[in-house]
């Protein structure tokens, strides 16, 4: 006898696999998949992220969110190719190689195109090695890792002829980031947080189609779709502030369903309607010029921050003078 007759799908009366209190909705496996895919389409349209005529490059990490995003875009019939960046993170877990294997397997099963960048092959060093060598990342490679990922993703999008770059940031990512910025009154960062960042010369448009799904919802989607994703966390994520904030915010969500979504949407709405006034960008627009090495726009006088990571000869000198960041 099955025990699970208590919670039913609100559409068909089958056993529900998930209840979403913030939406007052319980759904079975099939209706959940349908709902999730339709919602994604709604968000893409609502924020004018991209159209069916545009090619979308999806940043895939081998994790549940990014593979779910690629899967949904594929189901919706968008022209979506994947980009995987092998960061060379091993730490005894083969984290990068295993996630690359899963990303490749996912693409193969669906006949999708996956572009792969390997940091070690490109630069002769892995991300943790680069981080250890530079001041930006002596303790944790995350700052260096983020810089490399952002740069390589943008570069790949431009070189491969995509003007849209999609990342799988979910509501929990967005809310944790916003919470951290409010908590530290980091107003600068709050200006640019949005479901979509329009393209500008040298920069692809950045979109986050999952920004309104909680991480529980994206995880549930991957599970019911049977997507094989990397379950291990990046070993460097342990003890991160972001995890702490997510945990705190979920404790709050438990007693106040919908709190995360209201916090996020309330912020976007208040800022975009002008009710919340953040300090304006410098009056004089920052002078952007192409980096002499990689060509990406930068504000720094010489090489961009990314290329400076690989300036070994001048490293000693520059490290003592130049503030990182």
């Amino acid at each position: 006898m099955t025990s699970n007759v208590s919670m039913k799908c609100m559409k068909c009366n089958e056993r529900a696999v998930i209840r979403m209190r913030q939406h007052r909705l319980a759904l079975c496996k099939d209706h959940y998949i349908e709902w999730f895919v339709q919602q994604t389409q709604r968000f893409i349209e609502k924020y004018h992220m991209f159209t069916r005529d545009e090619k979308v490059l999806v940043a895939v990490s081998g994790g549940k969110d990014s593979l779910a995003l690629w899967d949904v875009l594929w189901q919706l019939g968008y022209h979506a190719e994947g980009l995987y960046i092998n960061l060379g993170i091993d730490e005894g877990l083969h984290y990068s190689n295993e996630s690359e294997r899963l990303a490749r397997e996912f693409a193969e099963q669906r006949g999708l195109v996956l572009h792969v960048i390997n940091v070690e092959q490109a630069h002769g060093e892995t991300v943790p090695e680069i981080a250890r060598r530079t001041r930006r990342g002596r303790d944790k490679p995350c700052a260096v890792c983020g810089l490399i990922k952002r740069h390589d993703m943008n570069q790949a999008a431009l070189e491969l002829g995509f003007n849209v770059l999609a990342t799988a940031h979910n509501l929990d990512d967005e809310v944790a980031f916003l919470f951290g910025n409010v908590f530290h009154w980091n107003l600068e960062q709050m200006r640019r947080q949005a479901p979509i960042l329009p393209e500008s010369p040298g920069f692809a448009r950045k979109v986050k189609p999952f920004c309104r799904f909680s991480e529980r919802e994206t995880a549930a989607y991957s599970l019911v779709r049977g997507i094989a994703y990397i379950e291990d966390e990046c070993p460097f994520a342990e003890g991160s502030k972001q995890l702490l904030y997510k945990d705190l915010l979920n404790r709050l969500e438990e007693v106040e369903p919908g709190a995360k979504l209201r916090f996020y949407l309330g912020f976007i709405e208040a800022r975009d309607s002008g009710q919340l006034v953040l300090p304006r960008e410098e009056e004089v627009p920052l002078e952007l010029h192409p980096c002499p090495r990689c060509g990406q726009p930068t504000t720094s006088p010489g090489l961009c921050a990314y290329c400076r990571l690989f300036e070994r000869e001048s490293l000693e000198a520059s490290e003592t003078q130049r503030p990182s960041g």
Binding site: M7, V17, I18, L223, N250, R251
Partner: peptide, 19 residues
């Protein structure tokens, strides 16, 4: 936290009232 964890039995996702 049920917000941060999902429970799976024999590959099937369970809802919070499942026994």
């Amino acid at each position: 936290s049920p917000e941060s964890h999902l429970v799976v039995r024999n590959g099937e996702l369970l809802n919070e009232n499942d026994v």
